[in-house]
Design a protein around this nucleic acid. Sequence first.
DNA 1: CTCCGCTACCATGCGACACAAGGTACCTGT
DNA 2: ACAGGTACCTTGTGTCGCATGGTAGCGGAG
Lengths: 113, 113
Amino acid sequence: MVAEKVFTQLRRGTLEFCVLALLQGEPRYGFELVKALGEVDGLVTTEGTIYPLLARLRREGLVETSWRESESGPPRRYYTSTAEGSQALAAFTADWQRFCASVDAILERGRRG
Amino acid sequence: MVAEKVFTQLRRGTLEFCVLALLQGEPRYGFELVKALGEVDGLVTTEGTIYPLLARLRREGLVETSWRESESGPPRRYYTSTAEGSQALAAFTADWQRFCASVDAILERGRRG
DNA sequence: CTCCGCTACCATGCGACACAAGGTACCTGT
DNA sequence: ACAGGTACCTTGTGTCGCATGGTAGCGGAG
């Protein structure tokens, strides 16, 4: 709970697109996303983070939603990526790789210095 | 100026340690750091960001400072990484690599889906 | 029937970076 | 020696995304 604080900052800006990536070709609902992200190192989060994020994606037209009945529990709101969402994801992926390369270079320089 | 907004978020949490990396083995002053970061893709920033950041690092004991005369201009406050700073940098580097690997994996999955 | 897990959602707060202005010291040209 | 420009540091305000904690409803297990 203490060392994890670093990841809270690192997640900024990336979490949004990680969600978008998880929605590619496969509709998912909120709680499912929390569990999926929880299995990935450094991306653990909670519903309180995911739902505002999903609402934002919806406002921006990057995802669409639809209700479906569940066999065990309350109905679920499924989120699907729009074409615009996939496009935004692709653009981010390029930016992300550039950014990673820059940071890696600096950290590497620091290790030598 | 529009697409750069993504990087603003990505910088969060990493900028601090990029500065720390630049200080390894080589004392630098604030303005110099701004220029050095400005040459790196995605890490461009301004004094208004750097100085509060440096103040934070100093409060946390990760850097030390000392004034030195300049041959051309006002005196400069030089920042040096402490042993604690180098240690924190090493810890972050490990976290960063874990995080990158996670994000890369998710983005990759999204491209296939 | 009651408790607990699942599911969705909202209100509030914090932390880190951006933007912009202000201030002081030094140098240079004339 | 004075004016203006540059180097350098500082401070205040704004923005935005994630965290924390809480509400509410449904359904199954004990």
